[in-house]
């Protein structure tokens, strides 16, 4: 059932990933049958709102699920290895060297009592077993790579001496330190001002182009997606509901949730266009279901204007609606 593209150029394949919180009869599935694939050199955006499971997906890939949660089914294949079957030690070696992560909040993700230089070299010395001097030299290169001004001085500074944008650059430099194949960027620009957000987006695009690093971008912000993504997977209440190329998804979304989401965002370009007199925004009724609410059918059915009887009884499978475009909807993606 998992509609995974050919693994030829595939770097990461997540197959039927199911994560549950709690045990026994009261266990609640936070992720259900999540499947997607990420090609080498590609940026895939996981788009979703609160409770969609986008961050949980990232944590599952990194093997960093909170203790209350456990993977109850599925595989996470990185270049052929199933990360979920790896031992703890193996996973520690994988994190940071083959997969690394950029977090949303650069202040809390950096250690406040260590210098930038120390934090940058730590991973290198652990994973690559390089000498102190070599690590320092590499740290300097990394800071230049991410466009830090005055990199020599920055090495000796502490996180609180840097601005938010600079801290996020350091985070990205740390993620790049061991030249990973994949960077997971979890809301990398959400905490930043618009102008700094633009700088970080450009930096990530630049890195992807120059180093060929694949990026799994996790965000709720459709603007960031429109700027960065090659392909998009839309998550809703722990399920993937649509996957498509970026343009295809924006031009011809097939899942009613994707459609609703795109229509609900005020678009600057349309709002200031001629003759438009305060266009009413399209509303999605209701709110995102909480993880505890178990639904037998499509999780979006209660908010969906197109819902038919079958929707609340049975979860629609992902069906191909066009080349490279799959959606899970009984109405819009019928066989």
């Amino acid at each position: 059932m998992a509609d995974v593209e050919s693994p030829m150029a595939g770097l990461l394949a997540v197959e039927d990933l199911t994560v549950a919180f709690g045990r026994g009869s009261s266990a609640a599935a936070a992720l259900r049958d999540v499947s997607f694939a990420l090609r080498r050199g590609e940026t895939l955006a996981l788009v979703g709102e609160s409770g969609s499971g986008k961050s949980l997906t990232a944590l599952s890939i990194m093997g960093l699920l909170p203790t209350e949660g456990q993977v109850s089914a599925g595989r996470v294949l990185l270049g052929g290895d199933d990360l979920l079957r790896k031992s703890r030690d193996d996973m520690i070696r994988t994190r940071g060297s083959r997969v690394s992560m950029v977090f949303q909040e650069p202040m809390t993700s950096l250690n406040p009592v260590l210098t930038i230089g120390r934090q940058l070299t730590e991973g290198l010395q652990f994973h690559r077993k390089v000498s102190r001097a070599a690590a320092d030299a590499r740290a300097l290169d990394l800071l230049r790579l991410v466009g830090m001004t005055n990199p020599e001085a920055r090495l000796k500074q502490y996180p609180h001496q840097l601005s938010g944008g600079m801290r996020q650059r350091v985070m990205i430099a740390m993620a790049l330190a061991c030249e990973p194949d994949l960077i997971i960027a979890d809301e990398p620009t959400t905490a930043l001002d618009v102008s700094i957000q633009a700088q970080i987006i450009d930096l990530l695009l630049d890195i992807k182009e120059r180093l060929g690093t694949s990026i799994l971008l996790i965000t709720h912000d459709l603007g960031v997606v429109a700027e960065m993504a090659d392909r998009i997977a839309v998550l809703y209440a722990g399920r993937v509901v649509e996957i498509a190329d970026c343009l295809q998804l924006f031009d011809a979304p097939r899942h009613p949730y994707t459609e609703g989401l795109l229509a609900a965002v005020p678009r600057l370009d349309l709002l200031v266009a001629d003759g438009a007199d305060r266009i009413r925004l399209a509303e999605l009724p209701g709110s995102v279901p909480s993880p505890g609410e178990r639904l037998s059918g499509c999780p979006f059915a209660p908010r969906c204007s197109l819902a038919i009887e079958r929707c609340s009884a049975e979860m629609p499978p992902m069906r191909t609606v066009a080349e490279g475009h799959t959606a899970a909807c009984w109405v819009r993606a019928a066989a």
């Binding site: 209350e68 995102v288 909480s290 609410e293």
Partner: peptide, 17 residues
């Protein structure tokens, strides 16, 4: 009996003890 954290999510205002 361990009670799952999920059941404690008093957050969304629907169908909760």
């Amino acid at each position: 009996t361990p009670i799952p954290i999920v059941a404690d999510t008093v957050d969304r205002g629907t169908g909760i003890a």
